[in-house]
Design a binder for these strands. Sequence first.
DNA 1: AAATTATTGGGTGTTTTCACGGTATTTTAT
DNA 2: ATAAAATACCGTGAAAACACCCAATAATTT
Lengths: 220, 220
Amino acid sequence: MSNQQYIKVLIADDQQVFRKGLSALLNEMPGIELLGEAGNGAELIEKSLLLKPNVIVTDIKMPILDGVSATRELLKHIPACKVIALSAYANDQLILQMLESGAIGYLLKSAEAIEIKEAIEMVNLHKPYFCKEITQKLTEIVAKNYKLPDKSTASFTERELEIIRLICNEFTSKEIAGQLHLSKRTVEGHRTRILEKIGAKSIAGIITYALSVGIYKNNR
Amino acid sequence: MSNQQYIKVLIADDQQVFRKGLSALLNEMPGIELLGEAGNGAELIEKSLLLKPNVIVTDIKMPILDGVSATRELLKHIPACKVIALSAYANDQLILQMLESGAIGYLLKSAEAIEIKEAIEMVNLHKPYFCKEITQKLTEIVAKNYKLPDKSTASFTERELEIIRLICNEFTSKEIAGQLHLSKRTVEGHRTRILEKIGAKSIAGIITYALSVGIYKNNR
DNA sequence: AAATTATTGGGTGTTTTCACGGTATTTTAT
DNA sequence: ATAAAATACCGTGAAAACACCCAATAATTT
């Protein structure tokens, strides 16, 4: 029936040459219908609302309105649209911003035609697509935030970990003492040891340490 | 010179049929030398120490010692070894455990020969390799845990953000006052406002909040 | 022009944190 | 078996945090 034969694509990039190159490539691809081009984020939003593309391929750095902001904005109006972000290089902040904005694809500008096609087809099925470099970055980001709890946590006793978690949850020594059925002074003693071990001088240090190392989530 | 022509691979899986199938496939692949097979984690450790493989492809669920534990253990002794984990399905916990154990590759058991080969070659260069499904999961995990500064950060004034960052760095009100050339009382006033806005009752709340929404970055 | 918000500063007082002393029992490791 | 941790507990006191109250000036918005 209304099963769409072509994936309707809109592209955005401030560099005219790159834009022309990309549009030429996409025009040659079977199964893809290029709806148009935009030179900045504002134009992208405008044309998107008008043309209702299935997939948008957009540069991140653009004048007037960048790709991330444009994506965030236009997905409010046409959430069915799938966005692939393009960037010259893999940057942590950009990747995270992109994820947060709602884009589900990320390619480097060095990508080849076949990969771009693959990405378009993939995201059109609502499946994320990331090029190898981005995948690697994602791994690093996840590993950085999940790997740590090990060695560092090891130096604390169970009691100490328990108290650290409670401190992170805004409980005072007195409250912690009540919860654990201990004396207030005992809890203070433990906290002193914790401060020593961490090398912190206040609970601020305890918390930044605990969060950076991954204690806190009762995980294990 | 001692540039190795073959990637030496060791595999582990408790299902004999799968193991045989995998070893048959790997044996046919040019550039790969299959060193042997293991039926469980303990056996994997044993043979790894003996055979010193470049790459290990191991199932996660195995009797006696599972793949994650085995990986963690054997990487202590032969850290140069690259581990690819195999699993029947993509599970958040498994992926995180795998990352934490030190494996740098993750494939589903439904993977095809060409992908397995690609993964082996990739991890052998110390580059992570994840199949599409896992990449997708990684994306979800990252997206879930990175709620970037949004509505939350926007509600703070510049001064407040400045003070939040200093609080996160273990400075007292007096110290902050000194650094910003303000009165101690002014800083305390700002902090009170910050507590109100966040709905926290102590600096513990300020810090957990700040770290969770990503204020704090410029100082590391 | 008027209202709101940001930024600055103050007073008073309670609670909490933390440094500096300790002691005693239990559990774990060598 | 003996040493070493871990756990529990206490006193004192200074400094910090926090809870209330308050007001003046600058900047921004309406």
